[in-house]
């Protein structure tokens, strides 16, 4: 049995809850993982030590981790991580890191795992139109989709050992361009409210924004919306040529459910569809489908959610 190593998922300088799902995934591979927390300040790792199920927690401390650079992160983590199967989140940044880390060790990487059974790993291929199950001979780096495995829970020992590490950073951030709104990006959100061409105009996206603000969600869009309206940026696009998202809840409004849109969101845990056409393909993928115009449905949804959150 290989050792397993979990690289904690760091979001905005803090350990993200997904990390505990990675611990559960490591158990599914058969062992209690060593959790490595890449950080510039070792106290960041304390949060990871609260999760149960880890064999030990190591704060890998280096200035390299102040900004993301694939080469720097891979070398600094490689220096600290023992041999074994390494697990990271399947976020865009961690997938990139996983690939570099695997290459550095001359081993393979398996991306976007959604199931682990009997040592075999299953991931979506062809944008989720099929699944692929693989077996490993030897070590590998494995990225795990968020919101698939249960959390390992809290109750960890709280012990952290600190190891200094270092790596060579090649790239440099010259400028950071913050998003105009403080709203989450679809790639980071646990709930996404998306609008399509059926919204009629970009101004009508304000109704989606109001709901998003009520429940702490991100606002997404179909490609038709992005291509039709200049005010809807590509950064909001979900799908084959947009972002692949895996939230707990995806609310699709005025979106028909074309195969390329489904490619980006079909693995969401729960899907709500609001569409005036009862035959829209999106309804085949919805847990809750509402056949109605958005003009009719959104005010009701907004006020119900608002009173629930109050």
């Amino acid at each position: 049995m290989s050792e397993t190593i979990v690289i904690a998922e760091i979001v905005k300088g803090a350990v993200h809850l997904t990390t505990s799902e990675l611990i559960t995934a490591a158990h599914a591979l058969g062992s209690q993982p060593t959790v490595i927390v890449p950080c510039a300040d070792a106290s960041v790792a304390d949060a990871a030590a609260q999760f149960s199920g880890a064999a030990k927690v190591i704060a890998a401390k280096s200035d390299v981790f102040s900004n993301y650079d694939a080469a720097g992160w891979a070398s600094a983590i490689d220096a600290v991580a023992p041999a074994g199967i390494i697990l990271t989140s399947a976020s865009p940044q961690s997938k990139d890191l996983a690939a570099r880390l695997a290459a550095r060790r001359g081993i393979s990487v398996v991306q976007d795992v959604v199931k682990i059974e009997g040592g075999n790993l299953t991931s979506p291929i062809y944008s989720g139109k099929a699944m692929q199950t693989v077996s490993l001979t030897g070590d590998a780096v494995v990225t795990v989709r968020p919101n698939v495995f249960d959390s390992s829970g809290s109750g960890g020992s709280g012990d952290v050992s600190v190891v200094d590490t270092t790596g060579n950073v090649a790239t440099a951030v010259q400028e950071f361009m913050a998003r105009a709104s403080s709203r989450l990006d679809v790639a980071e959100a646990n709930i996404i409210v998306s609008g399509g061409r059926g919204m009629g105009s970009p101004a009508n996206f304000s109704h989606l924004e109001a709901i998003a603000d009520t429940i702490g969600a991100a606002v997404g869009a179909s490609r038709a919306a992005v291509d039709t309206w200049e005010d809807i940026p590509h950064s909001m696009q979900v799908g084959q040529t947009g972002k692949t998202v895996n939230p707990n809840l995806y609310i699709a409004v005025g979106i028909s459910g074309a195969i390329q849109h489904l490619a980006g969101m079909r693995s969401s845990k729960y899907i709500v569809a609001i569409n005036k056409d009862a035959d829209a393909p999106i309804f085949q993928h919805a847990d809750y489908g509402i056949v109605a115009t958005w003009e009719e449905a959104l005010p009701v949804l907004q006020s119900s959610l608002a009173s629930m959150m109050a």
Binding site: M131, G138, F283
Partner: peptide, 28 residues
């Protein structure tokens, strides 16, 4: 060092609940 064991279709989603009319948004 990675071998494909099998390909399969994505697991079918159980049929969801379906509603007519915007008022159902409250129940959803």
């Amino acid at each position: 060092s990675i071998s494909v064991v099998s390909h399969s279709m994505p697991p079918a989603k159980p049929a969801g609940k379906s509603y007519q009319g915007g008022a159902a948004a409250a129940e959803v």
